[in-house]
Simulated scan of single mutants.
Amino acid sequence: MLTGVNVLLLGGDARQLEIISKLCEHNATVSICGFEQKKELPEAAIPVELNRRAFSKLDALLLPAVGCDDDGYVHTVFSSESIRLTDELLAALPKSCVIYAGMAKPYLKELCARQQLQLVELFERDDIAIFNSIPTVEGALMMAIQHTDFTIHRSNSMVLGFGRTGISMARGLHALGSHVLVGVNRSEHYARAYEMGFEPFYTKDLEQYVMNIDLLFNTIPTMIITAQIIDRLQKSAVIIDLATKPGGTDFDYAELKEIKALLAPGLPGIVAPKTAGLILADCLSQLILEQTKRREL
């Protein structure tokens, strides 16, 4: 239980609704800001105005998946009012307050550093990233089906990167009967991909492997699908880039060459916001409980 723990949720999307419900179930004192247009919320969730007073007694400040943009504005789909994080607001937080966000851009990192506040980026955690790979794969497969005129079964697919999302992506394609090539840059990843029944290769040799690929999925957040790679793709190929914006694809060149290339970050919150919200809610409840226990020691 989180009795006596003060939490403020600031903006967000449908995922935050699950977090609000879970924290209320655990008896936390839950304040919300940026949800004026959402009527069906737990009665225990208290709407507050964005001011220093609302920040002054918090144990945890919960921000959306992308904490805020490069100018400090917090995205919310349930309010027409602007929400902006400033030094003045964060200065009102107790130094023991922890700020949670899916990921943090430089503005938020620098803001927390100036105010000497702990910042936790949830998407950096292995457990959340692995759980999130499930709706990510489902969303990526949905996009592949929508944007092709052939089946995934017996197609030639390629996954670049063999991390938490890449492994799940390759496994999903393989389960549907695709021949899956996996681009890796570490020998242990090469061995594991081979053991799992995929065809591994090193990304430095990417040009040699892309000629007959039907579906190309990228999880590497650096420019890897360059003009040179795109030139070697067949015209019917589809690129689905799952890496963090701006992705790892030369989208302008792909458009010039009339090859379909889609940037698709944040799929869990788009295709399965309830599941994605429950994943975050369970993790946040545990983290806040651990935070409270440490403070009591």
Results as ranks from 00 to 15, higher is better:
G4T: 10
V5K: 15
V5A: 10
N6V: 10
V7R: 10
V7Q: 08
V7W: 07
V7Y: 04
L8K: 09
L9C: 09
L10N: 05
L10F: 06
G12E: 14
D13C: 15
R15N: 13
L17Y: 13
E18A: 13
E18N: 15
E18C: 13
I19Y: 13
I20F: 06
I20W: 08
S21G: 00
S21C: 01
S21W: 03
S21I: 05
K22A: 15
K22N: 11
C24A: 12
E25W: 03
N27F: 09
N27P: 00
N27A: 11
A28G: 01
T29S: 12
S31W: 13
S31F: 15
S31N: 14
C33Q: 02
G34T: 01
F35K: 02
F35P: 01
E36Q: 13
Q37H: 14
K38G: 04
K38W: 02
K39W: 09
K39E: 14
E40I: 05
L41R: 07
L41A: 11
P42G: 03
P42E: 04
E43R: 11
A44T: 14
A45T: 04
I46V: 12
V48Y: 10
V48L: 04
E49Y: 04
E49C: 00
L50C: 00
N51G: 01
N51S: 05
R52G: 12
R53N: 08
R53Y: 14
A54Y: 08
A54S: 15
F55G: 02
F55C: 01
S56M: 06
S56D: 13
K57W: 04
L58G: 06
D59Q: 07
A60P: 06
L61M: 07
L61F: 01
L62K: 00
L63S: 03
P64I: 11
A65D: 09
V66E: 10
G67C: 02
G67S: 00
D69V: 05
D70N: 11
D71H: 07
D71Y: 03
G72Y: 08
G72K: 04
Y73G: 00
V74S: 07
V74A: 03
V74C: 05
H75D: 10
H75W: 05
T76G: 02
V77E: 15
F78D: 05
